[in-house]
Design a protein around this nucleic acid. Structure first.
Length: 584
RNA sequence: GUGCCCUUAGCUCAGUUGGAUAGAGCAGCCGCCUUCUAAGCGGCAGGUCACUGGUUCGAAUCCAGUAGGGCACGCCA
């Protein structure tokens, strides 16, 4: 239950009554009415701008209108107080029993609390990672992987039907380079001395294994033969081998895509033709010559006629080429076909997670999606900024050449998948992120992963202790839902329940905004509320969760503790992070 | 030169899609452990939301411009 929706309905009912009574004209636009928590909790539990939004079209002063609403809302059974404040805000105070009932909701729902039907089962495609199969994943890929995966988890919780997809760029020049580099290592594996890896080849050590595996499978078959004979075979062999490695790296992070789509297969199946024809008949493709780029001119720039897509008609800055000068399709052309393919598979809503260095590519891709789907398809692109690695405050310098390149796997093996995942979600995706090996493994409040995990562990620990002390009491989540929850009256207890009860709304708004990081901040808020409450028991023994002489109160408090554990677990699960029961 | 992103407390960052007196954490200062895990908690102090205009009941948020930082800029992906 999103309780703000619940009260939004109450406001709508009040509006209807006022209209029926002739106090307000009919046909007012209610869409801008917001029902939300006030920024300042001292203003109440629920706040609405209804009077201010309706004031002008209704021709009534906002404060006067608010007073009319206040009369109606005061009659609401859950409302204990209504105040009109400031320019015309209507603030509601909700009775404790309402919040206590929400805690019971949480206990009955367990970790699925916050599951929403807001998405209505609508299919959403999230394409993330999609790293070129030319080497192991690095930390930047890891951020995109986690952001994409958490977003998928979030949308899934919000009621969308999510497809997690990986686009394999296995066509194009870079995989030919991969094939040649692998062939070199293959020759090396068969006893040749290759010396330094020449320019234009991938130097990575990881290709030695691939070359050796190829030598084991095919023997000397590809020695001394012209490139044209072995290129395709070696290429596919290397791509397959590297994709296995990439999937292992992702697996270590707990990420499994539903679908891997191959660019090469798409191109070979002739999928590029259809969208191009559609664009051509729409008059969006032409042969033309682009203006030279302003500013620094590339050395070899010369005007050339090209096949161009009129992306400027859809908000792009310049039209974009679809064919290279040798007649081959550009990556963009294949990507157009790929996005149309996703759309045809039923995904009108698409999300791509890219590195920030692809920022210049967003507009043209969105232009293409708009053009090909007649505006019915929507593409959102989440750009992930850099991850800066530190160790104890000292930047970790990375150089492929010096062999100090840090792979995603290195980091995950060092700090664990849960720490890595949480840390990747602690910043907005378009914000650069510092990752300090020393800090993220530290067990202190400075470390948000620890802080949140500890709250969950502490909650489950309290429940364990209680089970020992009250062997006869029914302490399952379902049983605690039936505890005498109106004994929870301490302001700190009620305020913690209010935080927990805002989880469904947070899920919906974070999902709508495609912003999983909001969950990280929310979980820290829950953890802080819980740690604070726990500590009150230190100062005032009557506020402890476990009171050996009062089973009824203990059960009510344990209900709250269990609720905290459920909500934290629910959030961590969206992130793909395991809620721990004990800190080790 | 153009486009996109960013600029909020000493530092790192949130800011619920335009709401009320702009919030956390760290660092600083002051307190709190014979106790359910102190691996923690409470309090104080800290602000020209880069700057200038505009839009309106109301702007950190939207628009225009200025300054600074990052990324990208035909046949790479």
């Amino acid at each position: 239950m999103n309780l703000f929706r619940y009260f939004q309905d109450s406001v709508a009912v009040a509006l209807g009554e006022l209209v029926a009574e002739g106090a307000l004209p009919a046909g007012l636009d209610a869409s801008r009415i917001a029902v939300e928590p006030p920024r300042d909790p001292s203003h109440g539990d629920i706040s609405t701008n209804a009077a201010m939004v309706l004031s002008k079209p209704a021709g009534v002063k906002p404060r006067d209108l608010a007073d009319k609403f206040a009369v109606k809302l005061r009659a609401h059974p859950e409302v204990t107080g209504v105040e009109v404040a400031g320019p015309g805000f209507i603030n509601l105070r909700i009775r404790d029993s309402f919040w206590q009932a929400r805690l019971a909701d949480i206990l009955r729902a367990g970790r699925s609390y916050g599951d929403s039907t807001a998405g209505g089962g609508k299919p959403v495609n999230i394409e993330y990672v999609s790293a070129n199969p030319t080497g192991p994943l690095h930390v930047g890929h890891g951020r995109g992987a986690v952001v994409g995966d958490a977003l998928a988890g979030l949308l899934n919780k919000a009621g969308f039907k999510v497809c997690r997809e990986y686009y394999i760029n296995d066509a194009g020049a870079q995989v030919d380079v991969l094939a040649r580099s692998t062939h070199l290592r293959y020759r090396e594996a068969l006893g040749e001395t290759v010396g330094d890896i020449p320019e234009g080849y991938y130097p990575g050590e990881y290709l030695k294994d691939v070359g050796r595996a190829l030598a084991e499978r095919d023997g000397p078959k590809w020695l001394g033969t012209p490139e044209a004979e072995w290129l395709a075979t070696v290429r596919q062999f290397a791509i397959d081998a590297l994709m296995i490695g990439i999937k292992e790296d992702l697996g270590a992070l707990g990420i499994r895509h539903d679908l891997f789509s191959s660019e090469r297969k798409l191109v070979e199946a002739g999928a590029i033709q259809a969208p191009l024809e559609a664009l051509t008949s729409a008059g969006l493709i032409y042969e033309g010559v682009l203006e030279p780029p302003k500013g620094k001119l590339p050395d070899d720039w010369e005007p050339r006629p090209q096949t161009l897509f009129k992306s400027t008609e859809f908000g792009d800055d310049v039209d974009r080429p679809l064919k290279k000068s040798d007649g081959a399709w550009t990556y963009f052309a294949a990507d157009i076909a790929y996005h149309l393919d996703k759309y045809r598979r039923g995904y009108a809503e698409m999300i791509d997670v890219w590195g920030a260095d692809h920022g210049g590519y967003v507009k043209r891709m969105q232009a293409a999606v708009k053009a090909l789907t007649e505006g019915k398809g929507a593409l959102d692109v989440k750009l992930c900024q850099l991850v800066n690695l530190f160790d104890g405050g000292v930047p970790v310098r990375m150089s492929k050449r010096a062999g100090t390149f840090v792979t995603l796997r290195d980091v995950v093996d060092e700090v664990g998948k849960d720490v890595f995942r949480f840390m990747m979600l602690i910043r907005k995706n378009d914000q650069a992120l510092d990752f300090d090996f020393a800090k993220v493994t530290e067990q202190s409040k400075d470390n948000p992963v620890f802080y949140v995990q500890y709250a969950h562990a502490r909650a489950t620990s309290v429940l364990r202790h209680a089970a020992e002390q009250f062997p006869a009491a029914e302490l399952t989540s379902e049983a605690l839902a039936g505890a005498v929850l109106n004994r929870l009256t301490d302001p700190a207890e009620i305020s913690l329940i209010k935080i927990l009860a805002s989880w469904p709304r947070l899920v919906e708004s974070a999902a709508e905004a495609h912003e999983p990081h909001r969950i990280a901040f929310y979980l820290q808020e829950v953890a802080a509320g819980f740690h604070g409450l726990w500590n009150k028991g230190k100062e005032d023994a009557t506020l402890r969760f476990i009171l050996s002489d009062d089973t009824e109160m203990t059960r009510a408090r344990l209900a709250l503790v269990q609720g905290v554990a459920h909500v934290i677990a629910s959030g961590l699960i969206v992130f793909g992070v395991e809620p721990v029961e004990e800190m080790r």
